[in-house]
Write a protein that binds this DNA or RNA. Structure first.
Length: 487
RNA sequence: GGCCCCAUCGUCUAGUGGCCCAGGACAUCAGCUUCUCAAGCUGAAAACACGGGUUCGAUUCCCGUUGGGGCUACCA
């Protein structure tokens, strides 16, 4: 093992940049995976490299095609387009077999016949004495002939890689030098058999075969890196560059889990978060762009709201944070409301479609959305927010009363409003009503008007509502209010 | 337990030895705005974990302590 390889750039200038996201289809697309994908994608797009999707489905038990579908759909939704066909490890078994055999032939790997129970017992014994749990290497001694014989007899076995005792140092783009002592690791299992590789081994083979230049992944993989490096060296593979991203954390600072928050990207999509907001939010979890200088004022400012293209422009992996970032749903909501506001109305209408009841007429939705746009934090809020435009909610007459005013006064004001509605066009009604409001007290006029129109305690202003409802409907609603007060 | 990583407002962060009695954003609180709500605007409160060094000078460099996290599978 050469520690001087630190100084040699693993991906020399000129080597094509190729990165990958390697999810395992054992669950729906996790936010953490989505963010790692985003960082990889951004890195590839920034440097004109290739972004590759590799499905790590070596665990047949836990893998399910439905999850692969969910993962791929998630990437598509986010607009993280990949550059080559989707690779599946389950379709590359011959490849792994070739390298496993090579390791076996070179005596760099061996068959292990220890039983799981035996192993577990040893592990616990070691742990109890305060030693790191490490495989004893007992089966290293078994000769290839004997191993073959025992295997033929049907004895259960797995394949272990001979981990050499050395110090492994690699340079992480985000964290700098990281050193491990491999004598603490023990011979790791690389495959159940020659056609059933395990994660750490398959990764090494694939990253090499796919000519991956930069491995950008979560911090939880730091401990896997030395094992992978050792296998690369045994096989004579070039070492990629590594960058380990900080983890997304739950509010209790542990790895993001369902205990606190939804962890699947699709949950956020269903709740009405925009892909633009998700991207913006995820990229800010553990990364910040360099502050910019406003040429006009000379002031330094830190941009917070990004488009995807803006991100590609300012992305720099070196600016990634080292510390885990807590998932802050409030910031996501704010970001979402900002992106909703910057969507143009027709686009917003399109995004809203899947959230709407079928019987809401399009034209009215289009008008209502203009009014409710700035009140929406999520697309799903719209139905609740704008429902009153489509059907006047039932409300108590009491709600029409403004503060200390009497019902009689309110009634009088509403009658006055009714005649205004009869006499004027909806377009210039605002001035007339405001004149009335100024003479009779704003609250006493505007409050009952708004309640009559919306049936709600909180809503947009009356004039905005009138624009959506039209004069006829507004007049009807005022009549209803009057009737309520009279009875 | 062992190994590894990390440590600036409640949260996301700017900051790479003096420009910092620490800047921005979210959240919070207060004020302004055609009645309410939202948005918007203005303002307030809010942090360099601790202890040693190094230095003329440390948030920034080094060491230690403490704290947090990750890993420790025939999962990925």
């Amino acid at each position: 093992m050469s520690s001087d390889s630190i100084s040699k750039p693993a991906a020399p200038i000129g080597r094509r940049i190729r990165v990958r996201i390697a999810p395992s289809p054992t669950g729906p697309l996790h936010l953490g995976t989505a963010r790692t994908a985003l960082f990889n994608w951004l890195f590839a797009r920034k440097h004109g490299g290739a972004f590759i999707v590799r499905i790590e489905d070596t665990d047949l038990e836990r893998s399910d095609p439905k999850y692969e579908k969910d993962i791929l759909e998630g990437f598509k939704w986010l607009g993280l387009d990949w550059d080559e066909e989707v690779y599946r490890q389950s379709e590359r078994l011959a490849l792994y077999e070739k390298y496993i055999t090579e390791l076996l032939d070179k005596k760099l790997a061996y068959y292990c016949f220890c039983s799981k129970e035996q192993l577990e017992e040893e592990r616990q014994a070691l742990l109890a004495q305060g030693y790191p749990p490490k495989y004893s290497g007992r089966c290293r001694q078994i000769s290839a002939d004997e191993a073959a014989k025992r295997a033929r007899k049907g004895e259960a076995s797995i394949i272990r890689f001979k981990v050499p005792e050395t110090k492994i140092t690699f340079t992480d783009i985000i964290r700098g030098k990281i050193t491990f002592d491999s004598s603490l690791i023990g011979d790791t299992v690389i495959a159940k058999n020659t056609r059933a590789p395990l994660y750490n081994f398959a990764v090494v083979v694939d990253d090499y075969e796919m000519k991956i230049s930069h491995v950008i992944r979560g911090e939880d993989h730091i401990a896997n890196t030395p094992k992978q490096i050792l296998m690369q060296e045994a096989l004579g593979f070039e070492r990629p560059q590594y960058a380990h991203l900080p983890l997304i954390l739950s509010p209790d600072r542990s790895k993001l889990s369902k205990r606190y928050l939804e962890t699947s990207l699709s949950d956020y999509r269903k709740e009405g978060y925009l892909l633009e907001a998700m991207i913006n939010f995820m990229v800010l979890l553990g990364w910040h762009p360099a502050p910019e200088k406003d040429e006009a004022t000379g002031r330094i400012f830190e941009p917070e709201i990004f488009s995807k293209n803006g991100l590609i422009k300012s992305f720099d992996l070196k600016r990634a944070q080292k510390q885990g970032a807590i998932f802050n749903i409030e910031k996501l909501e704010w970001l979402n409301s900002q992106h909703i506001k910057s969507l143009d109305n027709s686009e917003l209408a399109k995004r809203l479609e899947e959230f709407l009841p079928r019987d809401w007429p399009k034209e009215k939705v289009a008008a209502a959305l203009v009014v409710e746009k700035e009140r929406m934090k999520k697309l799903s809020d719209f139905v609740e927010l704008a429902g009153f435009f489509f059907k006047l909610p039932d409300y108590e007459a009491q709600l029409l009363i403004w503060k200390e005013m009497s019902a009689a006064q309110i009634l009088e004001n509403l009658e006055e409003l009714k005649s205004i509605f009869r006499a004027y066009e909806a377009l210039n009604i605002e001035d007339v009503i405001m004149k009335l409001a100024d003479s009779r007290g704003r609250g006493g006029v505007l409050w009952p008007l708004r309640v009559a129109l919306s049936g709600k305690q909180a809503s947009p202003g009356p004039f905005d509502i009138i624009k959506v409802l039209g004069r006829e409907e507004a007049l009807e609603r005022i009549k209803i209010a009057i009737k309520k007060l009279e009875s």
